[in-house]
């Protein structure tokens, strides 16, 4: 399964790519922003893939300009509440602090809200990652509890708010209206 939108391709994670993802995920430049920071072994990665390779979880390799540059996901989809938890990391340094993460997240969120028909997305954002925080706030994510003192507070993004923010971001990127 592949989706191409905003000039970026999301290719659903297959077993032959899990070692690539493990390599990315074990790199300290990525793991430092994750809750689980221990070394992930081959066996752990295989077991993880068995847990997430189902309709409740979609993990995608991000492909831009022909290169595999990172991973995006919607996980723990709750059909009853029409919600799920989004996530994204860019491994390729040249695209890290660029407009490319916005292309990726717009493609992911469109899939979540338009194809999966979710009403809400959730994100847990580490307080020591201000770039991720400002990125998600720009998308319309709002803290569930402004006084949450945990290291990884919960943020919510509704479909309605996302579409308003998408319009503005797409214009900045010079993208046609969806």
């Amino acid at each position: 399964m592949t989706l191409t939108k905003y000039d970026i391709t999301l290719s659903r994670l297959t077993e032959d790519k899990i070692e690539l993802v493990r390599h990315w995920r074990n790199d300290p430049k990525i793991s430092r922003y994750m809750e689980f920071r221990e070394l992930i072994t081959v066996e752990m990665q295989k077991a993880w893939f068995q847990r997430i390779n189902n309709p409740q979880n979609y993990y995608f390799i991000l492909i831009f300009e022909g290169k595999e540059i990172g991973l995006a996901n919607i996980r723990d989809i709750d059909a009853e509440h029409q919600s799920g938890e989004g996530g994204l990391f860019i491994y390729a340094d040249e695209y890290l602090n660029s407009e490319v993460p916005f292309r990726a997240v717009l493609a992911l969120n469109d899939f979540c809200f338009e194809t999966l028909q979710l009403q809400e997305m959730i994100a847990h954002i580490m307080k020591d990652n201000p770039r991720a925080l400002e990125f998600n706030v720009a998308l319309g994510y709002v803290a569930e509890n402004a006084e949450d003192s945990s290291p990884k507070p919960k943020y919510r993004l509704t479909k309605e708010i996302y579409f308003k923010h998408r319009e503005r971001i797409a214009r900045f990127l010079g993208l046609p209206k969806s």
Binding site: E94, Y95, L96, N97, S98, E99, V100, P101, F102, R103, R131, E134, F135, A138, I169, F172, L173, G174
Partner: peptide
């Protein structure tokens, strides 16, 4: 302070202030 959001804001600023649309490739 450089980030994805800053990159986006600079593209918007350049379009609004100078009437020029830069691509992500231009910025990168």
């Amino acid at each position: 302070g450089w980030s994805s959001l800053t990159a986006l804001l600079e593209m918007a600023m350049i379009e609004e202030q100078y009437g020029i649309t830069l691509t992500g490739n231009d910025i990168r």
